[in-house]
Amino acid sequence: MSSPAAKSAPAQARNGALLDVDGVFKHFGGIQAVNGATFGIAPGSITALIGPNGAGKTTLFNVVTGFYKGDRGAVTFDGNSIFRHAPYEIAQRGMVRTFQITKSLAAMPVIDNMMLAAPDQPGERFMNLIVRPGAVRSRESEVREQSMELLEVFNLTQLANAYAGTLSGGQRKLLELARALMARPKLLLLDEPMAGINPTLGKRLLEHMQRLRKEQGVTFLFIEHDMEVVMNHSDRVVVMAEGAVIAEGEPHEVRGDQRVIDAYLGETQEDSTT
């Protein structure tokens, strides 16, 4: 839990931003991976986070979600400071992430993957297993029902009892998204959701995002490299280079930004020399 003081820490907090990242720094040894990144995300938006390789996008994700502890800066989510809080606590507040390399829990059935993610499970407290088995059971059947509903939406019903490890790469991406939704997120952070899956599946994933935003008001922040996806499917784009946010705006604004072009050109030059 954060104090009110921490809440008001970012002086220039964008009013009404669901997630506000303000001057976040993170270094590893001598490498400054995130260098004062600042941006905000409006509720109900779909924001793409782009930038050349090594821009610090994933590191920023890790800092925001608590997997890395940032050096300094402020991160406010839904009005509360979450900077340097534990990952589980941040997730419980409604900011749920996926990983670049899909983390399906391979030796668990798909349905268990789903049910795991549900919040407020009395059965996760050891004592309740002994003293309140009834409450555990009734919530469990609720969770199972919700899981099946969601699997239905993602066309995974057939695979409910299959081990997650036996799924194809694309199915795993879908499962990870469905599982993240089970956690009832206000904000979903997706790290390259489109990477490594075929275009048809990618399209379906994007449709899901749009629908979830419309129907449930879920906000999205995703890292993406495919410019077509970024331009056509996001409301806003945040561009990072060398650990800092160099541009922020609507897709067409960002596209013409000279700094963005330079950053990407710089990358291609580096690539050709290495």
């Binding site: 890790n62 997997f67 990983f99 790290d191």
Partner: peptide, 23 residues
């Protein structure tokens, strides 16, 4: 920057070389 999603925090029980083909 790329492999860090999978490798940060304590390596797992089945810690292994990075998946073939990625890096």
């Amino acid at each position: 920057m790329y492999a860090d999603g999978a490798r940060f925090l304590a390596p797992r029980l089945r810690s292994k070389p990075p998946p073939v083909g990625t890096g």
